[in-house]
């Protein structure tokens, strides 16, 4: 846009120096994450209220989730957070090749998570556990079991959507790393990408026990 934008490397025209730019982008990302907390917060609020209303139905419905797959995905996602953190670290040191490799690992782990999730969804489809007119549930006749699946699909679906967006962003950052964009003074974009990815991980950290593990003890 302007002739200001090209001086320095990666400094946008509206900022005085890279420090100010890094500060601003970091704050911006954290504000975005605060926004995300409230977004998922609405779901968690609904979950809490309905589970307190229908504890038995929720526990029984929860048995239809596959703990092994959920647990596997938890490990995958935490591992992807590790590779993401290492990717940011590599960017801080200006090692673009390592940035690429770590981001690629993160991207692949994210895909593994999504593929497993897709299998889980498919399984629910086959079992008839998709809420709506075709919902079938063997066992409890309490209609509130459906509420559990409402929430399960809304929560994991919103989470998966965030993963997909994160995957798209990772591709962009991999390309940038290939172009050797990052150096000791300019790594902010990778850092805020990391913040987003870790946030998505944290959401799953709460979803896993709340959705998969509740009622495990009386199964």
């Amino acid at each position: 846009m302007s002739d200001h934008s090209s001086h320095g490397s990666g400094l946008a025209h509206q900022f005085d120096d890279l420090d100010q730019q890094l500060d601003a982008t970091t704050l911006g990302m954290w504000l975005f994450l605060a926004q995300e907390i409230m977004f998922f917060g609405g779901l968690f609020a609904a979950y809490t209220i309905y589970r307190n209303w229908h504890p038995e139905a929720f526990a029984e419905a929860s048995h239809h989730l596959d703990i092994k797959l959920g647990g596997f995905n938890t490990v995958v996602l935490i591992f992807s957070s590790l590779t993401m953190a290492l990717g940011v670290r590599a960017a801080q040191m200006g090692k673009n090749k390592a940035v690429f490799n770590y981001l690629f690992a993160t991207f692949m782990l994210g895909n593994v998570f999504l593929v497993v999730k897709a299998f889980e969804y498919h399984h629910k489809w086959v079992e008839g556990l998709i809420p709506g007119p075709w919902f079938r549930f063997e066992g409890s006749t309490d209609p509130a079991v459906q509420m559990f699946f409402n929430l399960y699909f809304a929560m994991t679906g919103m989470h998966a959507l965030h993963m997909i967006i994160g995957g798209g962003l990772l591709i962009y950052f991999m390309v940038q790393a290939r172009k050797n964009r990052y150096h000791e003074g300019y790594y902010g974009p990778v850092e805020i990408m990391g913040l987003y990815w870790h946030f998505v991980d944290i959401v799953w950290i709460f979803l896993f026990p709340l959705l998969y593990l509740l009622g495990l003890h009386n199964s």
Binding site: Q35, E36, M38, F39, F40, G41, G42, L43, A46, P131, G132, P133, Q146, M147, N150, L151, F153, A154, M158
Partner: peptide, 20 residues
């Protein structure tokens, strides 16, 4: 964002047969 998620739930309920 709270309105956003509320509208998402509304759309899921109205268009996809969920029942929040």
């Amino acid at each position: 964002p709270v309105l956003a998620i509320t509208l998402v739930l509304l759309i899921l309920e109205r268009s996809f047969g969920f029942g929040f």
